[in-house]
Amino acid sequence: MGAALRWVVVIAAVAAGAFGAAQIVQQAASGQQPWDPELTDNFIFIKSIPFVLAVGVAVGLLRGRAGSEERRGELVRRFRPGTVIGHWIATIGFVLAMPTGMWQYLGGVLSQDAPAPGGQILLDLFRPIPLYWIYRLHYIGGAIILFSVASFAAYWWTSGDRALIPPRGQWRAHLSVFARGLPRRLGARIAGPLRLDLRRAMPAAKRFTYYETAFSFPSWTIVIALITITGLVKAMRYVYPIPPFLLYWSSTLHVAAMVLIFIKVLDHLRYTLARWPMMVAMAKGWVPESAIRRVLEDEVQRESAPAEPVPARQPAGAMTGSER
């Protein structure tokens, strides 16, 4: 798609979004709707979703194809500005959606005759905040995440950038290095059923670690897809008759996905905080090549690796593509 056409798509999506937002606000503020604040917010959210997704797709298309290698002396670009901004936009969405989602769940579980010891403290802490504000922030966070998902999906689809997943035929090799980095017993337990060779020698990854390609990114994709789909079904329930069993399972899986995201965020922080160059890269886009190369090489040279020597490492090589 040419640059001019991409801009036309973006302008059309933004114009449609602005028109949609004006209509939605006008309806909500007309004073003609009989709903309480909570239900009003739900309707605003569900009506805005098509426009949010459209703007997200348009922004993803605008980013275009993966670029070539960029460097400034010792610094190499690990992430393009669009990826850095998109990552932090998604972070804002999660920071809004996660605590409010957790409160909706825990608030319900704790509001019982005999809450868990200390549960009343938490209930009292949040009591001054009207419930519809919790939902409102949750919907805002959800909308930001939907925008982000649409944007990244459109970008990856059109850019041809597949660096975050193992290349075709390489899944077992990537999983083997990932399993080797786990605590020994856990790695062995995973290796058995998946028929992984924990002694398999692999060169250092070139852009993303084997942990990221084999486990982190695929599991992020699964939990975000799960929470997005189940969230959409839940949000639709007042505007479309959802079969009760589907609503029940959507609610259950939405909570399960939320817990998995809490665990994923902790794992993400555990991994990246311990590898500081990755934090620098996601903040600035640029990172000293030697520092990021050390991180990549360290992965295939861990203490937990088997005694069998890893063959001489080939240079991590130029990090090419848009995500560097």
């Binding site: 825990l106 579980v109 005759d113 005999a114 868990a116 200390g118 549960g119 817990v259």
Partner: peptide, 12 residues
């Protein structure tokens, strides 16, 4: 902690 406690206490 709330998750662990509610695994044993929560009526729901």
């Amino acid at each position: 902690y709330y998750f662990l406690a509610d695994a044993f206490i929560a009526k729901t």
